[in-house]
Design a protein around this nucleic acid. Structure first.
Lengths: 205, 205
DNA sequence: TCCTTTTTGTACTTGACTGTACAAAACAAT
DNA sequence: ATTGTTTTGTACAGTCAAGTACAAAAAGGA
C-alpha cells in the first residue's frame, strides 16, 4: 500500500554505516548522507526520521558484523581460551585489513560522543558496559566448567579484556601492521592466562 | 614595536585546549574558538594563522601536562616497574577525576583525525609511535640495569603498555569509577610483570 | 610629535546545512 | 478506473561558518 521506496533500506543502512565509519558521526551531515544514498533530504527524513535514529540502526547492523560478535553469540559449553584467542586474532586481522584504517565504528563513536551527545552517548555507554558483562559471563562459564580456577577474578579480567580490545581498536589507526597488532594482543592475552596455545597450525576460518 | 596583543597567548592556548578536549577538533570551529577567547576571527587568524597550527600548539601544551608525561621525563637509572606503576595510577586518577569524562585529548584526536586529516593525522601518528618507542627505551634501561631479564621482549611489552594506556583513555569515558580503572590497569600490569608491589602504603604525592 | 608596526573590528562574499511545507508522482487495493 | 497512501522533488527561510579585505585603533621608537 502506498508508493514503494525507491531504494533498498538494508543497503542504505550499510552504505551509511561505511560513511559514518570513515568520517565519524558529526561529520556525516544529513545532506552528505542523503547524497551518498542518492536521495533527497526530504526522502531521508521521511525514511529514517532523524540522524540519531539512523545511527542507532547503523550501530546495530555494525555490531552484528564486528569481529568480536562471536562473544555475543557464544553459548556454553565452550572452550573460553580458544574463543578469546580466536576473537582477538580476528579483531587484529580485520583492523589491519582495512586499507582506510578506520578502526572500530563503535569505539570511534564512543570517543566522539560519550559524555557529549545527550541521546547517543548513553546508547554507546551501555553497548560497552554490556560487552564487559558479556565477557564476564563467558569467563564465568569457564570457571563453571573447571577450565579456570574457582577463585578467578572474572570481573577484573573482563575489564582487562575489554580494555585490550578497545586499545587495539584505536591503536590500529597508528600501528597498521597486523603482526604488530597480533603481538600486542597475544602478549597481553598470554600474560592474562587467556591464550590458547596449540592453535597455530589449526585452520580457524 | 607595534600594537601589543590584547590577550595572553599562553592562556589562550590553554583555553582552546580545554575546548578541543571537550568538543573535539572538528567541532571546534574558528568562530567558536574565537568567541571562547573573546576575540574576533580576524584576530584569531592574525594571531594563530590556521586552526591546524593552533592545534599543534595545543597538542604540545597538552602533552606536557598529561598524566604519562613522566615517561618522557625519565632518565636512567630508574626503577622501571615503579615508574610504570605510578604513571598508570596517575592516569587512572586523572581520567576518573574529570567530571566531564573527556578522556585524553591526544587519544581522542587520534580516533578522530588519524587516517582522516592530511595534516594532523601524521602528527598524531608520530606522537603515538614516539610514545611506544619511549616506553621501549625505558624498558631497555630496566634490562640494562638487570631489573628485568636479558631476554625480555621490550618491543612487545612496549606495545602492550601503550595499548593498555590507550584503552584506559577511552574506556574511562564509560567506566567512570577510579577503582574500576585502577583494577583494569593494575591487573594487566601485574600480569605483564610490570607492577611494583609494596607501594600501597607509600605516599606517592 | 610623527612614523612605523601590529592588532583589531567591520563588512562582504560565498558556501553548507537544517527542517519543513507542499504539490506531484507512483503504486496498491478496491 | 478510482481512491487512498506513501514517497519524492522542489522550494523556502533561516542559521552558521569560512576567509579575505580594508580601515581604524593602539602602541613603541625616533
Amino acid at each position: 500500500m502506498g508508493r514503494p521506496s525507491a531504494f533498498d533500506r538494508e543497503q542504505a543502512v550499510d552504505d551509511v554505516m561505511h560513511m559514518i565509519w570513515r568520517d565519524g558521526y558529526e561529520a556525516s551531515s544529513v545532506k552528505a548522507l542523503s547524497e551518498k544514498l542518492g536521495i533527497t533530504r526530504s526522502s531521508f527524513y521521511n525514511a529514517f526520521g532523524t540522524r540519531e535514529a539512523l545511527f542507532k540502526e547503523v550501530l546495530e547492523q555494525y555490531c552484528k558484523q564486528s569481529p568480536d560478535f562471536a562473544l555475543a553469540l557464544a553459548t556454553p559449553p565452550i572452550d573460553v581460551k580458544m574463543l578469546l584467542t580466536l576473537v582477538f586474532r580476528e579483531a587484529c586481522a580485520a583492523r589491519a585489513a582495512d586499507p582506510e584504517g578506520r578502526g572500530c565504528l563503535a569505539i570511534n563513536s564512543v570517543a566522539e560522543l560519550c559524555n557529549q551527545d545527550e541521546e547517543l552517548g548513553p546508547v554507546l555507554e551501555s553497548l560497552v558496559l554490556g560487552s564487559i558483562n558479556q565477557i564476564q559471563t563467558v569467563l564465568n562459564w569457564g570457571v563453571a566448567s573447571k577450565e579456570f580456577p574457582r577463585d578467578l577474578d572474572t570481573h577484573a579480567l573482563a575489564l582487562c579484556l575489554q580494555n585490550l580490545l578497545i586499545g587495539l581498536n584505536v591503536m590500529c589507526k597508528v600501528v597498521k601492521d597486523e603482526a604488530e597488532l597480533l603481538l600486542t594482543a597475544e602478549t597481553t592475552l598470554k600474560a592474562l592466562g587467556m591464550y590458547e596455545y596449540g592453535l597455530d597450525e589449526v585452520d580457524e576460518d
